[in-house]
């Protein structure tokens, strides 16, 4: 049997064929008894496969699932969902704050006016003395 025709035969059962292909298949079916026999065989096999399906679980299936759900409540998933919600809410704020902070740092470094670098990175002896004079120490 021509493999291409056979392919068309299978395809015709699951998807519409192009007009040209359909005509080719129809012609081949008309001419070949073997192909017609093959078509009948495939169609009855498909029918048998559909009918062979077992479509039920052992009795009490729904109850077993309900029991399973109750025995192991989804606490972990609940916490994860809660965490994800918080993350989603706070992420934009955190991102905006970080951006502002970075901009401020660069602006400050570039202009050196608002907070001179000395003051950021250096604590004078005088300041330490002043701290030590606080009654707590």
């Amino acid at each position: 049997m021509d493999k291409r025709i056979l392919k068309l035969l299978y395809r015709s059962l699951d998807s519409p064929l192009k007009k040209k292909d359909k005509e080719r298949l129809d012609k081949a079916l008309e001419e070949s008894e073997e192909l017609r026999h093959h078509q009948i065989e495939i169609m009855s096999m498909r029918q048998a496969v559909a009918e062979s399906a077992s479509r039920s679980f052992p009795q009490g299936f729904a109850e077993r699932i309900m029991g399973k759900m109750q025995r192991s409540p989804n606490a972990k998933n609940g916490l994860v969902a809660q965490f994800n919600t918080y993350t989603a809410v706070f992420k934009p704020f955190a991102f905006a704050t970080l951006t502002i902070l970075i901009v401020l740092i660069f602006y400050n470094i570039a202009h050196d006016e608002l907070l001179p670098k000395d003051k950021i990175f250096y604590v004078s002896d005088l300041m330490i003395e002043k701290i030590l004079q606080v009654p707590v120490f």
Partner: peptide, 26 residues
Amino acid sequence: ERHEQQVAATVIGILGFGPEVDDIGQ
């Protein structure tokens, strides 16, 4: 109940009969 048949057909179709089929369905 509405979808048991469909899930059973899929799971049993792919796995065949076996004790784990019910677990997979659940």
